[in-house]
Design a protein around this nucleic acid. Sequence first.
DNA 1: CTGTTAGCGCATTCAT
DNA 2: ATGAATGCGCTAACAG
Lengths: 344, 344
Amino acid sequence: MRKTSIKDIALKANVSIATVSYVLNGTRNVRPETHKRVTEAIEELNYKPNDIAKSLKRNRTNTIGVIAEDVTVFNAPDIIDGINDFGDRHDLHILLVNLRLDKRIGRNFGDTEAYRKYAANAVSELLSKQVDGIIYIGVHTRDLTGLIDAEGIPIVYTYGYTQNDISIQYNDEQASYEAMSYLVRKGHSRIAIISGLMDSIPSRQRLKGYYKAVTDFELPFDPLLIKMGDWERESGYRLTAELLALPEPPTAILSMNDVMVVGVLQAADECGVSIPGELSVIGFDDREFSDYLRPRITTMGLPLHEMGYQAIEALYHLINGNKVQTLVMPECRLIERDSVGVAQ
Amino acid sequence: MRKTSIKDIALKANVSIATVSYVLNGTRNVRPETHKRVTEAIEELNYKPNDIAKSLKRNRTNTIGVIAEDVTVFNAPDIIDGINDFGDRHDLHILLVNLRLDKRIGRNFGDTEAYRKYAANAVSELLSKQVDGIIYIGVHTRDLTGLIDAEGIPIVYTYGYTQNDISIQYNDEQASYEAMSYLVRKGHSRIAIISGLMDSIPSRQRLKGYYKAVTDFELPFDPLLIKMGDWERESGYRLTAELLALPEPPTAILSMNDVMVVGVLQAADECGVSIPGELSVIGFDDREFSDYLRPRITTMGLPLHEMGYQAIEALYHLINGNKVQTLVMPECRLIERDSVGVAQ
DNA sequence: CTGTTAGCGCATTCAT
DNA sequence: ATGAATGCGCTAACAG
């Protein structure tokens, strides 16, 4: 048997289908008595509205497409959670497309052509599904200009950006500045930094925050304390060994992610340097494991949930033709644990 | 201006809308010349099909609803990735609903009433969106009978089950048996086990595997080596301390998850027992951090991707009215790292 | 090989 | 306060 439609309701309640539609949507005043008859019929027939038909008629689906470059990468789940948070409150549904880039092309993001077709496909599917807008979640922050063409429907990027569209990023400069401030408050002045790959915007922004702190707090500036890492554990290990071999080693290290901190810990251990006794470390990302290492790692937590929330919020305004109010950049938050000690 | 529809194509190509539909879907033979005219018109007008209209007509959306109890919990992303894997190959789209249970109700899963309304809402939304089927991903394996009513549309559970529906689980008993075999091969015979909460099915199944191994390999059976943990780090710590204080301590510990291993490591460290020198440990889950701890943790990896894949595969068959062939239970895989040594 | 047409379930305009 | 009728874009049955 067919599913029950408003036609069945109308029949049962002895009204027109228009009236049913009106009580369903509250679009027009309906006499209480009629209203009651309709409501009862709906109840009795266990009627469930068909959003597909509604969408076709209204030319609006209340569904947004979320393209994640890879859902298994650590930033995605919390961003999606933020999107859901707002979506729940505003009756917006999520059509999720997972590009699975990590599995399909590994880390080779420079080669845009390798995944352009996946991205284009995703957009195409979403467009066919008539989504009201799109959110694109990158695996790491980079310029995505020209990757896809949203064909005029609203789009917002996060963990990535283009030259023409809205994107949500957290404040990298502020984050590293705040990390530095914390270290300074703990009495450190000879502070080293291990960066991520320098072709990355966050790396550059964070370095900027580092310099600003060095200037503001009048710390000794020593180029030997600035090390270029590559986000991987091994570089943390290698560069820390170099740092510790310096005639005058740093008393603290700011690492641009938690993964490299794993290498820092290992190098310190092998050099017989205790953390946080003789060397302090502060990481970035607040990865789950940073709470499981010994010592537990103090780190700058990323506002992932908030980024997702802001992204869909911005998209929501775009969809409704409202001006997107200038949002404040979400900020990282210091997660204080045990890897930073006071300098003697 | 309105989006272009097949009507526009028909007009431009001088054919009927039916013909356009036929070339679009390959549903019927079309004269090559006509075909070409249509294809060109499609190209020129940059036509994009409207799946909403198609779905309404066909009464089929090619979309499945995925209800995740919490996407930020570690098992969800890989399961979803497996779902996407199959979905990509079979033109199935994913409407994702995130119950956000961890944030909304914490770990209090016993109190079904606390989240029944969230779950019911999710199903209701999905039903309105006319999904062809539903996959339910729990945060941990338990009986979900009666939680939701899918109103007759196909549903498959994973990381959870009901008494009436299909569910995909990995083989817990085999997994712990395999872990034990590995330990035995490494020369261990006095092997302790730290379980999860005993109201959990996986805990019981794994204990079964443990007993089977004890029997098969004729290991000394000592009730003192069996400890009931609660999945949390602290219990791993506490129980390991107890184990090490035994007159005859074990030479190896099988921990039912990696988080408790963190506690094991700490306790061993504080007791001056070296791992893997004097004590071996094997965990469960292959959490990312198990590669970052020192020593790197040997652990049983969960077949999450495969579970997602099997779940949607089963659902696909259900939707198409095919018999779901009896699937083989996906199995855990040993990830060999550095926390297990040979017993002297 | 191609065209005509009904209708999927619903919101909405125009009547009354 | 309510109803009749139209059409959103598309597929498929029917007709030729």
